[in-house]
Write a protein that binds this DNA or RNA. Structure first.
Length: 714
RNA sequence: GGAUUCGUAGCUCAGUUGGUUAGAGCGUUGCAUUGACAUUGCAAAGGUCAGAGGUUCGAAUCCUCUCGGAUCCACCA
């Protein structure tokens, strides 16, 4: 054995050997009890970020259970990441001086498909490099035909049950990316903008958006506001930049008398609150901004201008006409931005598909309350409940081509929708007209990934694993993904007439890890330029060290900063481990003992009192305790404790104490036999954490017939 | 505005149902070793567990408040 453990080349070689031997397959333990994890599918198109390296937790669990003899399944996959990917692709097109509008739908889709297929091996190679023992034979993609079929079916069932409906509502719309978004995809930022105090006849009201005034269908005051009591219900004649107009004054409790002058202009087509008010007061909706971000003809001479231009022009003209009372230049408020391009989100009225969430959320809340699904760490349950108890209907339409096109056809004659599971319908299901056209929109990516556990198991013929044992992911997608999987999972199983609530859920334990931040404690993001490629770090320290550093010293669910000293400590630990093996090898040679000689008959049982020296008994006992502790901690998802116990025992008990003792032991043979045995047990316990170095040592030192990965847990 | 979470050694963090002298890694200091270990071993220094009050036989751990940091949710013209 070399003096220093050098992982370069070793890790790839070992991984290849494991994969070729089929160790990642559930066939390793065909008679064991099922234990399954579905990998949260990374974006097929993007390289992994450091957060993905946290999937080491899943690998630890899978390796542990494989060694326990369970029939383990760890199913890999990739997500098409609809809008995310299309956004990246459009940037690429932009770089080539093209745009998505230069291509028709089919061509564009094909181009993105090829682009993604070209990039996908990068991500999968990274997962391999980290040592993840995924069953690659079963890998799935969210756009696989069989997965898409299941998504169609769910959509149709929701539609038939009245849980999916078409509605013209205000949606979050990005006029730059040309698509709507769900509430979760809007980010908010504090901005300082002018607050304009505008004269509406005898009244003055405050607004940040004077350009939307052409869409005003009322002005509102608080019903208890004495100042304006006399105006309520009246229609005022007002002067505007487009000439004389009439506007109704209504009373609504939504108005805060303290804000501005206590008067609000109501623009139902361009403000979520105003939209709500308009429903209560039966006000018409007048859209003045189009989906391209320009004013339409309702804005008179301002039509054709972009929102910002129009605002300036309107304000200028108002000032000339004396319609502006004053301007507060220091008004600070929060505005919604597109999470991707950071431009302001426009509330715009648009016909979209919505999922009625309340009926789906209720059972999802129940199963966690009843502990059919357990969430680790438990404190995360609150976030889960908070989301589901206040849930709003989900807009699942996206105006992009990269994704699963919504299987709904609109009839040109009766205007009704026909939803089909698979094949294109020939005629309208309502009036039998053949004049039908498919919706151009695609599903929100999360609508399909929300069905992932069932869809992957069903399409790989592994439904006996449903519900899966563990869903492990970052706490940041608890509501985006985990909650939706629970809701859709239960719904789909009920449709399949699964009665047992425990069989409806998609998984039993939800295990949530924290974020990996940069060494300075800042969230890694491309825009900040502080993203660290996990593979670079793996290259430098070895996959084992990276894996160990990520679970050592961080409690489950807590964020951590990437720490180079910790990585270095972990790397040294691999070297320590290696040199302990070297010591054993050298000692065995000097004493002319071979591991084969030691064999089973010579293996000393820890309880065989009297035959062993005091030190030998002690180390045996302590190893037993370690085995118990590590097993207990793994069962409780306390990976940091397990790692710490192993590190401490191996280094400071086995190496520092026992090996030092062996050096001067009087009965060297006996001491060595015990050392060989104890060290082997340690390798097994450590294997889920540091699979490569342990496997390499096991193969070299023990010359074992079987590989460590498929050996028995002590 | 609502909520969550954190504040423990110089730094990064553990502290597993409240229980004897609060732990680790890195760093610092001293000694030893270079015949398993691009070292490693032995030992030492270093903490009023953010602050105040309370519950308890006993609090880093539970409760209240204050200060400071982070995050999430709702989005107000």
């Amino acid at each position: 054995m070399d003096k220093v453990y050098n992982q370069k080349g070793v890790e790839e070689r070992i991984y290849k050997n494991w994969e070729e031997n089929g160790y990642f397959s559930s066939k390793v333990n065909p008679n064991g009890k099922p234990y399954s994890i579905i990998l949260p599918p990374p974006n097929a198109n993007a390289p992994l970020h450091f957060g993905h390296a946290m999937y080491v937790i899943e690998d630890i669990l899978i390796r542990y259970h494989r060694m326990l003899g369970d029939k383990t399944l760890w199913l890999p996959g990739a997500d098409h990441a609809g809008f995310e990917t299309q956004f990246v692709f459009e940037k690429k097109l932009q770089g080539e001086g093209k745009s998505r509008f230069d291509y028709d739908r089919e061509v564009l889709y094909k181009m993105v498909w090829d682009f993604v297929q070209g990039n996908r091996p990068v991500m999968e190679g990274q997962l391999r490099r980290l040592g993840f023992s995924l069953d690659w034979q079963k890998k799935k993609f969210t756009l696989d035909e069989d997965v898409v079929k299941i998504v169609y079916k769910t959509f149709k069932q929701l539609f038939d049950d009245g849980l999916v409906y078409r509605a013209k509502r205000l949606v979050n719309y990005c006029t730059f990316d040309g698509t709507s978004f769900s509430d979760l995809e809007v980010i908010y930022e504090e901005r300082k903008d002018p607050l304009y105090y505008i004269k509406y006849g005898p009244l003055v009201l405050a607004t940040t958006r004077p350009e939307t005034k052409f869409g005003d269908t009322a002005v509102a005051v608080n019903p208890n506001d004495k100042r304006y009591k006399e105006y309520i219900g009246r229609t005022l004649d007002i002067e505007t930049v487009l000439g004389k107009a009439k506007i109704k004054v209504i009373a609504d409790k939504m108005v805060d008398p303290e804000f501005g002058t206590g008067i609000v202009k109501i623009t139902p087509a361009h403000d979520f609150d105003d939209y709500e008010v308009s429903l209560r007061h039966d006000l018409p909706m007048v859209q003045v901004i189009n989906y391209d971000g320009k004013m339409n003809d309702k804005a008179g001479k301002f039509s054709g201008m972009y929102i910002k231009q129009a605002r300036r022009a309107v304000v200028e003209e108002m000032q000339e006409k004396g319609l502006i009372d004053h301007i507060d230049e220091n008004y600070v408020h929060r505005i919604g931005l597109c999470y991707k391009c950071k431009n302001p989100i426009e509330p715009l009225p648009l016909e979209q598909w919505f999922v009625k969430m309340e009926p789906l959320a209720k059972p999802a809340i129940d199963v966690v309350r009843k502990s059919y699904i357990k969430i680790y760490p438990k404190s995360m349950e609150k976030h889960y409940f908070q989301f589901l108890e206040n849930i709003k209907d989900w807009n699942i339409s996206r105006q992009i081509v990269w994704g699963i096109r919504i299987p709904a056809w609109k009839c040109g004659d009766c205007q009704e929708w026909t939803v089909a599971e698979g094949k294109t319908p020939e005629k309208c299901s309502n009036c039998s007209s053949k004049n039908i056209k498919q919706d151009d929109d695609t599903f929100d990516t999360w609508f399909s990934s929300g069905q992932w556990p069932y869809a992957t198991l069903k399409s790989t013929d592994n439904l006996d694993y449903y519900p899966t044992t563990v869903m492990e992911t970052g706490y940041d997608i608890l509501r985006w993904w985990v909650a939706r999987m629970v809701m859709l999972g239960i719904y789909m199983q009920k449709k399949l007439e699964v009665e047992d609530e425990r069989k409806q859920i998609p998984f039993q334990d939800v295990v949530l890890h924290g974020l990996v931040k940069d060494p300075l404690g800042k969230k890694m993001s491309k825009s900040k330029g502080n993203v660290i490629d996990p593979l670079e770090v793996v290259e430098q320290y070895g996959a084992d060290a990276v894996r160990f550093a990520l679970v050592y010293g961080t409690a489950l669910g807590n964020d951590q900063s990437l720490s180079y000293p910790k990585l270095e400590a972990a790397r040294k630990f691999t070297n320590k481990l290696w040199n302990m093996a070297r010591f054993i090898e050298i000692e065995l040679n000097e004493n002319a003992i071979s591991v084969e000689d030691i064999g089973r008959e010579l293996k000393v049982k820890p309880d065989s009192k009297g035959r062993l020296g005091e030190e030998e008994q002690k180390i045996n006992l302590k190893t037993k305790e370690l085995e118990k502790a590590v097993t207990k901690h793994l069962d409780r998802y306390q990976f940091n404790f397990a790692a710490e116990n192993l590190y401490h025992f191996i280094w400071h008990t086995l190496a520092d104490k026992y090996i030092e003792y062996v050096k001067q032991s009087k009965d060297k043979t006996q001491s060595l036999v015990v050392l060989v045995d104890v060290y082997e047990r340690c390798l097994k316990l450590l294997h889920p954490f540091m699979p490569f170095v342990t496997e390499e040592i096991y193969d070299v030192l023990y010359k074992a017939k079987e590989d460590l990965i498929v050996s028995d847990w002590p």
